[in-house]
Nucleic acid binder design. Structure first.
Lengths: 241, 241
DNA sequence: AGCTATTATACCACTTGCATACCATTATAG
DNA sequence: CTATAATGGTATGCAAGTGGTATAATAGCT
């Protein structure tokens, strides 16, 4: 255990400081999510310049131990959050797997809602929905057929969506807070088989997703058919207390 | 437990307030569906400005803990998130859906681990595993083929397991803390088709599950094939921040 | 000389928290 | 049905504090 800094030591000050701070963090000196003292105070407390302290903090930030927000403060990083079971769209999902996503549009516009869409999106009969239908691919290979429907007032100009629907929505302040997904195995219909380059009857992973905004309203109703041989869905479950 | 706000703390007030309110919500201070006091009253009660209080409420709303309706009030969000994405076994899962689970045993005993099991369970080659293979049914209809493997020292007498493996483990203090599942659509093999009363080639939902104890060690490695036409897997996803 | 570590200083951009006023929506009394 | 009150939503301004950055200077080392 290192208790203080030694300016004459061969190891640079900022490395000694980094070790000191790491110990303090491990010792729960500050609770998770709580802010550390400001840089200027910490620097004075340890008797070093602010830039030296910042060098140590930068290394701790790179290691994921603290988070810094300009204008706000430096915070103890929250406990390891679930990298899985986070809500992502296809494009993001594929990039996370190191694959390049692609899109071939089948339909993109405003249509009258089907009874199923009326039910899922809590609309009034006859209301319009923005419908986005496309074949999604990874590394040029078709992977899934995706049919998304949103209330028309959420997406008045669906033809503006380019690649990632979620990125487009995010840019307009529409960020889903949670989603419910139902997964089932189904046999490929003739149409789906053709779009995905399979024979009909081959197994597909059918995923039905309802995304909700923070206020509880439904943002998106999406039905996707993924090739069984090209796609894994990963879920993390938590035990009961 | 945080009992009051500290204006001199480096942690911003609205974050402290958010934590306070989250505790109050968890402590059932207000009933589900009930309205919280109006913003102006809450702000005065906590001794902060209304905008600071609103900042805390905004974060709680984004987390789905409260719902706000202009002109009406701020309400405790109904709790429907926990029951999902919780780790359950087949028996419990089926009962939750109002179906009576059943079991037909195919294999139940101690065997030498296969290479795949050695890898998944982090065993040494040649070590023994408890293997449980069975056809699971709901309302008398076969629904899935389930093949579970556990390190032999966790389950030395596998023949004692009756219906629910999870209930048996629970009674012995073995409670999984988390699990990773991979889901894929596959075509039924001849063997699986026969066991489930299908034709081979029909779509099945293949689920691979690794359950972990709180100390990080692997408790169980289970591979299941569910009938695509009889089983939905439901997952809840959370938005980013 | 050239490099690195360290310090000192100043400034910038952003966040926080407050005060005030007003708007939009909803509930309710009459 | 309407008018009113109460609620959440928004906009502005302000001051203090925070992390982010640039520049220059000093010391020690190779």
């Amino acid at each position: 255990m290192q208790t203080k800094l030694d300016a004459r030591s061969a190891t640079p000050l900022y490395l000694q400081l980094e070790a000191l701070l790491r110990e303090a963090l491990a010792a729960q000196t500050w609770k998770a999510g709580e802010a550390l003292p400001p840089e200027r105070a910490l620097a004075e407390q340890f008797g070093v310049s602010r830039l030296t302290l910042r060098k140590a903090l930068e290394r701790l930030e790179a290691q994921g131990l603290v988070r810094r927000r300009q204008g706000s403060g430096t915070y103890v990083a929250p406990r390891l959050e679930q990298p899985l079971s986070l809500l992502t769209g296809f494009s993001e999902d594929m990039r996370a797997r190191g694959l390049e996503p692609g899109t071939r549009w089948l339909k993109r516009g405003l249509f009258t809602a089907t009874p199923e869409e009326v039910l899922a999106l809590s609309l009034s009969p006859g209301e319009k929905v923005a419908r986005l239908e496309r074949v999604r691919s990874a590394q040029g290979e078709p992977v899934a057929v995706e049919r998304a429907a949103l209330p028309a007032h959420r997406l008045p100009q669906p033809e503006q969506v380019q690649d990632s629907l979620y990125a487009y929505l995010e840019a307009r302040g529409l960020r889903p807070a949670r989603a419910l997904q139902r997964l089932r195995a189904v046999a490929a219909s003739r149409q789906e088989a053709e779009l995905l380059g399979l024979r009909s009857g081959e197994p597909l992973l059918y995923i039905e997703r309802l995304s909700y905004l923070a206020d509880g309203s439904v943002l998106e109703f999406t039905r996707s058919h993924y090739r069984g041989d090209r796609y894994d869905f990963v879920a993390e479950l938590l035990g009961k207390q």
